[in-house]
């Protein structure tokens, strides 16, 4: 079994290089803003959202950049597809855990840093606004656990989705890649608005139902966590299906 080296290969560079660089840049940005507000006579006021300074972009980039190269390399090393799939799933869970911890540390650092300035940092922006009512009723530990749960499951689902899409691109031929690359934006930016105009009531009902099921409309984070866990399982199963007999294309 080559599972341990496979996981190590999948996560080592990301955890030791990519993540420190990514968060290092944000830390430098925060320190620069803090220094400018304290050391210069400029009046600096503003607000940052946690949605802008978190691992969302990082996770999408990791999913797209590393999937193809690790698939080719691990196959060259004689790692079976079964082990590659298991290794990828465990790596997704590990990387997401590190990312969510780093996000939280960055939030705490930013909150601490900007406390004495005219700038404010709204940590976990989206989570706060969607589940504000629910979270405000919780004690500090439960609130923190819920935030971490939301952050973790959202990152795991996002990374699973990008890994699946990246692998789909590995499997698809050029024509299929063009169809998907053009088709999805067209569907999202033309098809959906067109449907909303043609059948507004049905679309509104559909969106409302989805928002309710996912816990977004009724402010229930646990429902969102469950929904994202379900989404993760689906993406991981799809990834497994397309990887099991994936050939190396030259």
């Amino acid at each position: 079994m080559k599972l341990v080296p496979t996981i190590r290969y999948n996560v080592q560079d990301i955890i030791t290089k990519t993540i420190p660089v990514y968060y290092g840049v944000f830390t430098l940005i925060f320190l620069t803003l803090f220094s400018m507000s304290k050391l210069t006579s400029l009046y600096m006021a503003g607000s940052f959202s946690g949605a802008s300074f978190n691992s969302t972009v990082l996770i999408v980039v990791i999913g797209f950049v590393y999937t193809r190269s690790s698939f080719r390399y691990l196959t060259q090393m004689g790692v079976s597809k079964r082990t590659q799939i298991t290794g990828k799933v465990i790596s997704i869970l590990l990387i997401s855990a590190v990312a969510v911890v780093m996000d939280r540390l960055l939030e705490l650092f930013a909150e601490f840093l900007f406390k004495s300035t005219e700038m404010t940092y709204e940590g976990s922006g989206i989570a706060f606004s969607l589940f504000d009512a629910y979270l405000s009723k919780l004690g500090p530990v439960a609130r923190e656990m819920t935030l971490i749960g939301l952050g973790y499951t959202s990152r795991v689902m996002l990374l699973s989705a990008t890994v699946f899409i990246a692998m789909l691109y590995v499997r698809m031929n050029t024509a299929a890649k063009v169809i998907v690359s053009v088709g999805i934006p067209v569907l999202a930016f033309v098809g959906m608005p067109a449907l909303a105009m043609l059948i507004p009531e049905q679309m509104a009902k559909l969106i409302h139902t989805i928002a309710e099921i996912t816990g977004l409309s009724n402010g229930l984070p646990i429902r969102s966590i469950l929904w994202m866990t379900g989404g993760t399982v689906i993406f991981m199963m799809l990834y497994s299906l397309i990887t099991r007999r994936a050939p190396i294309k030259d």
Binding site: M1, K2, S69, R72, Y73, T75, Q76, G78, V79, S80, K81, R82, T83, R244, I248, D250
Partner: peptide, 20 residues
Amino acid sequence: GGNDTALGKMFFIGEKNYFP
């Protein structure tokens, strides 16, 4: 059929480069 031990008994090198 996806057996790491069996695959580990072989090593393949081809014309193309599959290393990062």
